[in-house]
Each structure stands twice: as C-alpha cells, then as structure tokens.
C-alpha cells in the first residue's frame, strides 16, 4: 500500500467508519452462524440462488419507489431472494429438471434479469440511479450509521433465531427421517433455515455484493468445521471467522481507493479457511498425513457413500 493511500485513509477513520465497520462485522458473524447450520443441512449453496436474484429486487425497488435508501433496496432484495427460492421449489416440483440444473437456471436467469434492469436504469440516467451497481461487488463506504444499525439489528435477530431453534435445527440436519417420524415439522424447520439464509444473503449485500455474498455463508463455516466436532463450537467459530473476515475486508477497502469490499472480505475468509484446512488438529491436511503414518483412519474417511 502506498504512503499516499495511508494518508488518504487516515481521516476516514471517524466515528462513522467505526460504526459501519461494527455493523458489517455483525453481518459477517451472523452469516457465519447461519451458514454453519446450512452447511450441516448439506445445503451450503442454497444461498447462491437467492443471492443472484437479489439484484432484481434492488432494481425493482428503485424503479417502483424512486428511492435509494438501504432499507427500501434491501426489502426489494429480500422479496426477490424469496421469489428466487420459490422459483427453485416450483422447478423441482413441476419439472424433470434436476436440482443442480435448477439452481444454475435460477442463478443465471435471475442475475441476467437483474443486470438487464440495472443497465436499463443506468442507460436512462434516472435521478439517483448512480451507485446501484455497488450491490454487485459490495461497497461499504457509502453506508450511513443508520444503515449499519439496521444491518446489526437484523443480524442479531437472525442469530437469536438460530440459538432459539438450535435443538430442532440440529435434529433435522442430522437425521431428517427420525425428526419426521417423531413428529417434527421438517419442512417448516427447513423453510425457516432457508429464510434465514436468504435474510443473511440480503443483509450481506452491502458488504460482499450479489456475486460473492454466498462466500460469507459458505467459507467461514467450512473453516470452522475443521476445528471442532461439536455443533455449538462450530457456530461460535463460524461466527468468529465471519466477523474477523468482515472487519479485515472493511478495513482494507477503506484504505485502498476504488477497491470493492466483497472480494476483500472473501479473500480474508479464504485465508482463514486455507489455514484451517492445512493445520487444524485431526481434520487438517497435515494432521491427516501424520495419522496415515500411524494407521488410524481419519474421521472423514468414515463418511458413508
């Protein structure tokens, strides 16, 4: 980093910047917690379809209301994310198309529609339309204190819901058949989980953007899984890694001009993940190489199928 960039950054470290960083950190933490559950439920990429359709909602909310404040745009994004997930369910229910193709269709077509709308808005130069593209790759510099508080509150609610229903979610994730046989509404619990993921994807948009926000939900939990064999620890670590990645991303993007936040947050999370994959005790790559010498099968080898 050049000295001038450092100088330019210095005045940016105001009260505002800190509050915004705290809000984004809360989002990273909650995304890690919620993502841990969706990793356990074997649906780590469920958020990806929702993430790519959020753009349609951002553009539509702007077109319909003419406003560009964060609550309006994120509300639109949430509606679109849920619509994207509903489209996924409909495709599964009414067609022969397989799950992977259905996800790819929603991703491709949903993002295409979002791009088409955004480009149409930009080309017409509607007042206030500048900056909508920041939702593509994330840009936290424009957040206000009120925005940050909103993000933090939504994140806190999401974490609270996870903690409240942790017993139920763990049961369904581990053995859905047993859960159903003992009378738990598996479909409902899954819907709550998917909704939580959609909410996290939406509040993650300012930090990571539509294209990369999936990473907030996927990478920290994968890293956390390396270190523990207990669900509560997994949630704590997933949240911590997400929080750290978000802070690093926001800090670096505040200092480097024109650099979008999303990729930086993702790279920070990826660094944690790579380190975890390599050196974690027992599950890490190094530990396994060592174990193979001592002839004890690594835990992952016991996975069935």
């Amino acid at each position: 980093m050049s000295p001038t960039a450092c100088l330019a950054a210095a005045p940016a470290l105001t009260h505002n910047t800190l509050v915004v960083a705290a809000g984004v950190a809360a989002v990273g933490c909650a995304a890690g917690v919620v993502g841990s559950l969706s990793l356990l439920r074997k649906r780590p990429l469920i958020g990806d379809a929702a993430a790519h359709t959020t753009l349609v909602g951002v553009a539509a909310a702007f077109l319909l209301t003419g406003r560009r404040d964060l609550p309006t745009l994120l509300t639109g994004a949430l509606v679109a994310a849920v619509a994207g997930l509903a489209a996924l369910v409909l495709v599964r229910r009414f067609t022969r198309t397989r799950d992977d193709a259905a996800t790819a269709i929603v991703i491709g077509v949903g993002f295409g529609l979002g791009i088409a709308l955004l480009s149409g808005i930009t080309a017409r130069g509607l007042p206030g339309s500048a900056g909508l593209e920041q939702f593509l790759l994330g840009h936290t510099a424009a957040l206000t204190v009120r925005d940050a508080v909103l993000l933090a509150v939504v994140s806190a609610v999401a974490v609270a819901v996870v903690l409240l229903g942790l017993k139920e979610a763990t049961l369904v994730a581990f053995d859905a058949d047993f859960a159903a046989a003992t009378g738990w509404p598996v479909g409902l619990i899954d819907q709550v989980l998917v909704t939580l993921v959609a909410v996290m994807v939406v509040v993650g948009l300012p930090a990571a953007g539509a294209v990369l926000v999936t990473a907030l939900v996927v990478i920290p939990p994968v890293a956390a899984r390396q270190w523990t064999d207990r669900v509560p620890t997994l949630l704590v670590l997933g949240g911590t890694f997400g929080l750290v990645a978000a802070i690093v991303g926001v800090a670096v993007s505040a200092v480097v001009p024109r650099m979008p936040t999303g990729p930086l947050v993702v790279l920070a999370a990826a660094t944690i993940c790579i380190v975890s994959l390599l050196i974690a005790p027992r599950r890490g790559w190094l530990a396994r190489r060592h174990q193979q010498v001592t002839l004890e099968p690594p835990p992952g080898m016991r996975r069935l199928r």
């Binding site: 053995d175 899984r225 669900v231 996975r303 069935l304």
Partner: peptide, 14 residues
C-alpha cells in the same frame, strides 16, 4: 424409530 444406519452422515459433529 430406528432408521437404517446409512441414512445419516456419521461425520456430523455430534
């Protein structure tokens, strides 16, 4: 109910 053993992921962190 005791389901078949193969129906769950035994790598699950519990």
């Amino acid at each position: 109910y005791v389901p078949q053993r193969e129906t769950v992921d035994w790598d699950f962190p519990v």
